[in-house]
């Protein structure tokens, strides 16, 4: 393969993914527990969306939540940073601990919580502002940067870490909405990184992207794993296999099975998990 020098960019960008898959399968010692969820139930009005979910999410690793649509995996994700608070009629019970503190505790301010737990959404949602302003948004509202120079530094560092710097360095003051889908999603990740969160939640971050852009994001996720605790919801089992170290399978609002990614995919204990990953449903 290396002999084909005139190969497309696609080749260059796709190649690292294979490494990522290898890495993922390399059995890594699980870090200390960052998020501990116990008996989480979520209700939308009278409808219960999540039943007694208990899950541990380790530090410095990628945890994938998989399962058929409507199984509650996004709902679980959104209750970690209390985004469910913004939906009228939504109620969360049970404990979700971040570093041992219950996020639903009255002493926890959702503003602080969300600064610590960043989130990336399914559809890239850059603000209708310049690229610079998009990344600077978090530091500005939280008052993290003390001066213009520091702000510029944060923006540059975040964009670099999101792997977008090289592409946008010369057009920082153009609207973020003018970027391509994949670039927008990386911009949104840079925006989340800019406030140095401890956890990054990703809600199907690649579902609106083409395969090449998806590969870039997956590569990025793998790099970010060293510094952040990442929880990713995905539809694609292949993606879960490629990027995650731990996988949790949700079905009909219940957590069916969770464990090291390699084990879930090669040796699932529950028959429903087996049916799902072998493509019988979902």
């Amino acid at each position: 393969m290396p002999s084909q020098r005139d190969d497309s960019i696609a080749h260059d960008t796709v190649a690292p993914v294979h490494i990522a898959v290898d890495r993922a399968h390399a059995s890594q010692p699980a870090g200390p527990i960052k998020i501990r969820a116990r008996d989480v139930n979520v209700f939308y009005g009278d409808k219960q969306a999540l039943f007694d979910v208990s899950l541990d999410v380790p530090e410095n690793s990628v945890t994938a939540l998989i399962g058929p649509s409507g199984c509650g995996k996004s709902t679980f994700l959104r209750s970690i940073n209390r985004m469910n608070d913004t939906i009228p009629g939504c109620k969360v019970t049970g404990r979700i601990e971040l570093d041992g503190e219950d996020v639903n505790d009255r002493s926890i301010d959702p503003v602080v919580l969300r600064a610590r737990v960043g989130m990336v959404f399914q559809k890239p949602n850059p603000f209708p502002k310049t690229i610079f302003e998009n990344v600077a948004y978090g530091p500005r509202i939280h008052g993290i940067a003390t001066g213009k120079a520091e702000l510029e530094e944060i923006v540059e560092r975040s964009l670099k870490r999101a792997g977008l710097w090289a592409e946008v360095a010369d057009r920082l003051h153009q609207p973020g909405t003018g970027l391509s889908g994949g670039q927008q999603q990386r911009l949104v990740i840079a925006r989340a990184i800019a406030v140095s969160p401890e956890v990054i939640l990703m809600d199907e971050p690649c579902s609106a992207l083409d395969p090449i852009a998806t590969a870039r994001i997956e590569e990025l996720i793998d790099e970010l794993r060293n510094q952040y605790c990442i929880v990713i919801v995905t539809h694609s089992m292949a993606q879960a296999a490629r990027v995650s170290q731990k996988t949790a399978f949700f079905h009909l609002g219940k957590l069916v099975e969770a464990g090291p990614t390699g084990e879930i995919f090669t040796n699932p204990r529950d028959s429903r998990t087996q049916d799902y990953i072998t493509g019988r449903f979902g």
Binding site: D109, V111, V112, A115, R116, H142, G143, I144, V195, S196
Partner: peptide
């Protein structure tokens, strides 16, 4: 992380 949290909470 700790110093960041302080900055956020201060405001």
């Amino acid at each position: 992380a700790a110093s960041l949290r302080q900055t956020v909470e201060a405001r």
